[in-house]
Amino acid sequence: MRPFSYDRAAGAPGDAGTTWLAGGTTLLDLMKLDVMRPERLADINGLGLAEVRLDAQGLHLGALARMAEVAGNAEVQRHFPVVAQSLALAASQQLRNMASLGGNVLQRTRCPYFRDPSHAACNKRNPGSGCGAMDGANRLQAVLGTSDACIAAYPGDFAQALVALDAEVTLRGAAGERRMRFADLHVQPGTTPERETTLRPGELITGFTVPAGPWAARSLYLKVRDRESYAFALASAAVALDLDGKVVREARIALGGVATVPWRAAEAEADLRGKVLDEASATRAAEAAFAAARTHGENAFKPELGRRTLVRALLLAKRMEA
């Protein structure tokens, strides 16, 4: 690790040179790998921001609530199962005890070319240097939202639940507090894969609000991995359904493991609206979700795995008692 200064943040907004330290599970890992090189760490763990609260408006989550705490909250499990499951199925118990929600949504990609500076080419780590993954080891990389510059997959799970349920994120910066749609936080790589979010310099995520809705209780997170626990998603689906009998009033769908950002599958949602939900309609929706997929060799299995994951998630959600 390169030298850095360490201070406890007192709540004042940071500036462009400040790197916030919460759980540290991504940051310290990438600092050891020399991928991230902050000069000033501001430890925000003393700021509170740990609320987990349900009310008529929905679910309010502080950015410093730990993944394990929210995953294990009985009210969240009951009223927002997709939120609890996306957290419980991520990482390991130790990491969930450490990692904050705010840090989790900012987790960096696991693309091996990004994580290893001995690879010269990585447009995300070193803009303009090329992409090693495009024709390289890309089994885990994205098929949706990619560009000619970058195919690095977004690795998280919780963000898919937030995107599917139209959550808002609250931010604090030099200009005060602002709220925005969580779906507007992450940006696709395009020609600038080094820019991953719309956060302003020094801005801090303070919390999330997940609105209540008739679909929230009939929701789930299905994650398909190389091993049964403690692995990143090869494909995942966050699904929430509002059903009128067998007919879909509203479907909310986000996909993980297959895209460069937490991916809202709007085409699949539109496809299902007003239809009887069965294997045939779910399959058509899944085809719509992956219609724009682009594969790069080793990850050619992902569209099919992603479609099957989504079909299974939809049919499991249909069977839920909600």
Partner: peptide, 26 residues
């Protein structure tokens, strides 16, 4: 030393965490 194996697990405030990804200063 990268938070992947769990060999460094200790209890911090009673909960298992990875000592390799925890700054002593924090």
């Amino acid at each position: 030393d990268q938070g992947q194996c769990g060999a460094c697990t200790v209890l911090l405030d009673g909960r298992p965490v990875l000592a390799c990804l925890t700054l002593a200063a924090g």
